[in-house]
Design a protein around this nucleic acid. Structure first.
Length: 233
DNA sequence: TAAGTTCGTCGCACAATATA
DNA sequence: TATATTGTGCGACGAACTTA
């Protein structure tokens, strides 16, 4: 009965435009996220404008589509889709389940928001100054880069995000990442089209691959050096 | 409140895949 | 192998937001 009612609501919704995200808002996972967000000083906009009407500050209110964009970018490693198809990310059930899964630790959603907010703050104060459209084109790619770099992995499971130590994502680290990502963006033509393309993501992974390989090399040298050191004693 | 700017969605074109 | 179907990338345009 409940299911058929939802079907009718969803069918009717193809005529009157209620954001699709609002139709998912009663799913249990969103209740869990909302509770957890409250404990972290964030307001999850499960019920549209509920916290806005309570006078909560806009930068603490996280909408369902925005959270979907963040998770698509950093957990699913598809920042181009976060940029290109913001509202259609959760239209398809399969895609939706990849973003909002009970298998995920609810903590990954807060970490994602925290990282994304740090990135956006740094992008706004970046020098040379970036236009808002450039910020829009880069923000999800930079966040994904930081996550993969922090984990030192090109492929990782969404739950691994909770292992990231946010305190290691310093403003300097973010600025350095923005510079790297922007260089790739510029080399491809620095357009909105680039930001929505798979090529940009592939190029970013290429760069990440180099960084991760260098890091492994560094660890190897370090362990050899400490081995030699202990042998000489 | 009007003008300018930005963002999100729609729909077209093309590509990839399935089916007869 | 031709045709139909589905998926993807992209540009254009309108809605929403911002600013003066």
């Amino acid at each position: 009965m409940k299911k058929s009612r939802l079907k009718i609501i969803k069918a009717t919704n193809s005529q009157t435009s209620v954001p699709i995200a609002s139709l998912r808002a009663t799913d249990e996972i969103h209740l869990n996220i909302e509770d957890y967000f409250l404990s972290q000083g964030l307001y999850y906009d499960r019920r549209k404008n509920y916290y806005k009407n309570l006078g909560k500050s806009a930068d603490q209110i996280i909408s369902i589509p925005y959270l979907s964009q963040i998770i698509t970018a950093i957990a699913l490693r598809e920042p181009n889709n976060s940029r290109a198809r913001p509202s259609t990310l959760i239209k398809n059930d399969e895609e939706y389940m990849k973003i909002f899964s009970k298998e995920y630790d609810v903590d990954i959603y807060t970490r994602g928001v925290q990282i994304q907010k740090l990135v956006e703050t740094s992008l706004k104060t970046f020098s040379p100054e970036l236009s808002t459209s450039q910020i829009g084109d880069l923000k999800f790619h930079v966040a994904m880069f930081l996550v993969a770099d922090a984990l030192k992995k090109l492929t990782y499971g969404p739950n691994e995000i909770k292992n990231i130590d946010i305190s290691l994502i310093t403003p300097e680290k973010i600025t350095q990442t923005i510079t790297t990502v922007k260089e790739i963006y510029d080399s491809l033509g620095s357009t909105n089209k680039v930001a929505k393309s798979q090529d940009f993501v592939t190029a970013i992974f290429g760069k990440l691959g180099e960084i991760i390989a260098e890091h492994r090399e560094f660890l190897k040298k370090q362990s050899l050096a400490s081995k030699k050191d202990s042998e000489s004693k």
